[in-house]
Computed example of a mutant assay.
Amino acid sequence: MTKVATKASLSPGRRRLLELMQEINFGRIEELTVRDGEPSFDPPPQVVREIKFGGENGPRQEVSVEDFALKSQATQLFAQLDYLGNGTVLSLDVKHGLPFRMSVKKTVRA
Rank of each mutant, 00 (worst) to 15 (best):
M1V: 14
M1Y: 14
T2Y: 08
T2F: 08
K3E: 11
A5P: 01
K7Q: 10
S9F: 03
L10W: 02
S11C: 10
P12C: 13
G13C: 05
R14L: 04
R14A: 04
R16P: 03
L17N: 00
L18D: 04
E19D: 14
E19H: 07
Q22S: 09
E23I: 09
N25H: 12
F26T: 01
F26I: 05
F26H: 14
F26P: 02
G27N: 04
R28H: 07
E30S: 12
E30W: 01
V34S: 00
V34Q: 02
V34K: 04
R35N: 08
E38S: 04
P39E: 00
S40V: 07
F41N: 03
D42N: 13
D42S: 15
P44V: 08
P44R: 11
Q46H: 11
V48C: 07
V48S: 03
R49M: 13
E50T: 14
E50K: 11
E50R: 10
E50S: 14
I51N: 11
K52V: 12
K52M: 12
K52Q: 12
F53L: 15
F53H: 13
G55D: 12
P59V: 09
R60D: 12
R60G: 08
E62A: 15
E62P: 00
V63F: 05
F68H: 13
F68C: 07
L70W: 11
K71N: 10
S72Y: 08
Q73S: 15
Q73G: 02
A74M: 12
T75Q: 01
F78A: 03
A79R: 13
L81K: 03
D82T: 02
Y83P: 01
L84P: 00
L84I: 09
N86D: 15
G87V: 01
T88L: 15
T88V: 15
T88W: 08
V89I: 15
V89H: 06
V89F: 07
V89N: 01
L92S: 04
D93S: 11
D93V: 12
V94M: 07
H96F: 13
G97R: 01
P99E: 03
P99M: 07
F100I: 02
R101H: 12
S103C: 02
S103W: 01
K105T: 02
K106W: 06
T107C: 07
V108M: 15
V108Q: 15
